[in-house]
Write a protein that binds this DNA or RNA. Structure first.
Length: 719
DNA sequence: TGTGATCAG
């Protein structure tokens, strides 16, 4: 039965006829539900734009190792391309397909399993399709097609430097240009040019935009100085290495010739969207959006929901009030208007409301951040209103901190937003800016690697044996200053040696699912002198998820929160307060959700904390097989916990109280105030450490704990 | 006395 499956047929000549078999009735009667479902799906697969390109794509990959495929949403590339390749003679191993987001990896795997008539993941050893995302590895030994997040493949590359179990890596959604995708592309390019693979490795790079030239140029041009060196002796957290790790041989790399890269374009499927611009620029986009929403609602026929792109939570909630007010005053002959906000911090249940059908005679208006641009598909939308702005992360080398700024979006972002109106029928897009302003927008959004703190990326490169990170093959190289800042940071953390080589600590930190700073703190906690691993992991878990404390926007809510959380507050500061919260939650055995609600703590955030905690404890097992559980009321324990943080923050995140009663940072002697959300707010202690420095109405330190200056020598004096 | 686009390990 296995061999009858068209996608497993190893006889590619017969394949076309089997796929096209139009008389499945006799098979259907005798086949399992999975096979019936597969047969039903075949027709819709055959209608996808990419279907007719199957032969072409397979031929191209027989002749070339690299294929750059551009295709818009709806072309079917993410589901069909991996299936096309399964029967190729070079495809003896697995096919990896990377995705930027977990939900995408999971839903694609589910869909492809159905199409292939295969059980999903670990449910059966016969499963051909699986997925792997953080906290959820759903694969079986027989998995041939594996959907996984970019971060998961990066982790796999640290453990198995040549990706020996794969015959093909498909990198999807490259146009989003996450830091992880940029690293992956560089690592894959190095791997291809290293000549380290025993069997061929095929690479398919897929992008929704037509930036095919830069991608094919990237892969076809050999690196001037192939980077092959590095000390990769074992220093693992897992201790399960079998394969070599990176490019550790001292032998010279094989000389590289210019690679042949094949390129291919597939049409998407999209209904037409009519564009409208403002004649004159507006000063007040909120008002312009309000007018546009009401006008659309009163003039355009039903059905047809409206999706409005805005910058952030606050402005969305403001507009929501205005629209609801005005819509309430409309004459009764108009349909009703249901306003739904959408942003990531919104509780899950509230986010779900956008998928529910509106009551009869009601039009939905969804006011969204750019979450609706890529991460969430809102159904029923025929009208898009675009303010042309978004909050964008920026990194400032000199201050060494990331901040969010409202900035104009790029052309490709604007076009993506517009496309959201044409998913189900023809639609319209109203841009709340002029056509001239559109013309002046950047073509693409600046890749994240040019806008962020690079210490994590650089550490990963070092852990893969890349010694000269300045000549790493980046699709768009970050500037030298940002790279040097990251190297310095890693050196201060003690993850690199003076000569820039990664050390044992660095290799261990690189494998933890944390920033280098937080990873370093965890390692410190495992040292026998500190011996407070479990306690520090609880705190670190909180710092690596969203805020566990429910936001308090009114005076009343603030008082209520203060009251509800009073038993959790620790006078030493926010770190020990977080620890108290996790310990209380974890020891709650009856109803954790209720406990969270009672304490005005986000249950969803706490569930994430528990997942991260479990993962970190498992990963740290080799560091400290039997960690002691400490009494957290013991002063020595408290001191040890905070000293671990001191080790990770070194001079960056410390401030001391000056005679003028203000806190000044160690590093820059800058005045910094304790944030009102801190339990230490308003208190004066000799010195503090803090998790982050933010500049809003003034310079604030958030996540603050009291320390003693005499501790510094103990922490900095030792290695 | 005040904040937060989004995603990933």
């Amino acid at each position: 039965m296995e061999n009858k499956s068209p996608n497993n047929a190893h006889d590619s000549k017969k394949r076309k006829r089997v796929d096209g078999a139009q008389n499945p009735r006799s098979q259907v009667q005798s086949q399992s539900p999975l096979a019936v479902k597969k047969q039903k799906l075949l027709q819709s697969r055959q209608n996808l734009p990419i279907w007719s390109r199957q032969r072409d794509i397979r031929n191209r990959l027989r002749e070339h190792d690299i294929l750059v495929l551009s295709g818009e949403t709806g072309s079917g590339k993410s589901t069909q391309l991996p299936q096309f390749l399964l029967a190729e003679s070079w495809c003896t191993g697995k096919i990896a397909v990377t995705q930027p987001r977990r939900v995408a990896a999971i839903s694609l795997a589910r869909r492809v399993a159905e199409e292939m008539g295969s059980p999903l993941g670990s449910s059966s050893p016969a499963s051909k399709v699986g997925y792997s995302v953080r906290f959820d590895d759903n694969t079986s030994p027989g998995t041939k097609i594996k959907y996984l997040t970019e971060g998961m493949l990066l982790q796999e590359m640290l453990r198995d430097g040549t990706l020996s179990q794969y015959s093909c890596v498909v990198v999807d959604e490259v146009h989003e240009r996450s830091v992880d995708v940029d690293l992956l592309l560089g690592f894959l390019k190095q791997l291809l040019e290293s000549g380290k693979r025993r069997k061929p490795l095929k690479i398919v790079v897929m992008s929704a935009t037509a930036d095919v030239e830069s991608l094919s140029e990237f892969f076809s041009t050999p690196m001037t100085k192939p980077e092959v060196s590095g000390d990769t002796s074992n220093g693992t957290v897992h201790g399960d290495d079998e394969e070599f790790n990176g490019f550790s041989d001292s032998e010279q790399p094989t000389p590289v010739e210019k690679k042949q890269v094949s390129t291919c374009r597939v049409e998407g499927r999209q209904y037409p969207v009519k564009l409208h611009y403002l004649d004159n620029p507006t000063e007040d986009v909120v008002d312009a959006a309000l007018q546009r929403i009401l006008h659309l609602h009163c003039k355009e026929p039903m059905p047809g929901d409206i999706l409005v792109f805005m910058t952030g939570q606050e402005i969305i909630q403001g507009l929501q009030k205005l629209v609801e007010e005005l819509a309430g005053n409309l004459p009764s002959e108009y349909p009703r208007l249901l306003v739904l906000p959408l942003f990531a911090a919104l509780p899950q249940a509230a986010q779900q409301r956008i998928f529910e059908r509106a009551p009869p005679n009601t039009r939905k208006v969804i006011l969204s951040t750019n979450i609706a641009e890529t991460s969430v598909t809102v159904p029923g939308v025929r009208y898009v209103v675009d303010t042309g702005k978004a909050k964008i992360k920026q990194y400032r080398n000199r201050l060494g901190l990331e901040s969010l700024l409202v900035k104009p979006i790029s052309k490709s972002s604007a076009d993506q937003r517009k496309g959201r109106a044409g998913r189900e029928a023809a639609g319209q897009c109203f841009r709340l800016y002029t056509q001239q302003s559109y013309g002046e927008l950047e073509k693409d959004t600046k890749p994240e690697i040019l806008r962020c703190d690079l210490s994590n990326a650089v550490l990963k490169m070092k852990a893969r044996g890349v010694e000269d990170v300045l000549s790493f093959p980046f699709l768009t190289p970050p500037n030298r200053e940002a790279m040097e800042k990251a190297l310095l940071q890693l050196l201060l953390l003690g993850t690199l040696n003076e000569d820039g080589k990664i050390n044992d600590i660095g290799r261990k930190v690189a494998r933890l699912p944390l920033t280098p700073t937080l990873g370093r703190i965890v390692l410190e906690a495992a040292r026998p002198e500190r011996d407070c691993l479990l306690e520090v992991i609880d705190i670190i878990a909180c710092l690596s998820v969203e805020n566990i404390f429910q936001p308090t926007d009114t005076e009343e809510a603030r008082e209520k929160a203060l009251e509800a959380r009073s038993q959790l507050h620790r006078r030493q500061g926010d770190h020990l307060t977080l620890l108290a919260a996790v310990q209380a939650y974890a020891s709650e055995t009856s109803d954790r959700k209720r406990w969270a609600t009672d304490h005005l703590i986000s249950h969803r955030a706490m569930q994430n904390v528990m997942n991260v905690r479990k993962q970190l404890i498992a990963q740290c097992k080799p560091l400290s097989p039997n960690p002691t559980i400490r009494s957290t009321t013991d002063e020595a324990t408290q001191e040890n916990i905070l000293k671990c943080f001191l080790k990770g923050y070194h001079s960056n995140n410390i401030a001391r109280l000056c005679p003028d009663k203000t806190y000044k940072t160690f590093a820059g002697n800058q005045t910094v105030a304790i944030h009102p959300s801190s339990v230490l707010f308003g208190r004066k202690v000799e010195a503090v450490i803090y998790n982050e420095f933010v500049f809003t109405t003034k310079a604030y330190a958030r996540g603050v704990s009291a320390i003693q200056l005499k501790w510094l020598e103990d922490v900095w004096g030792s290695s």
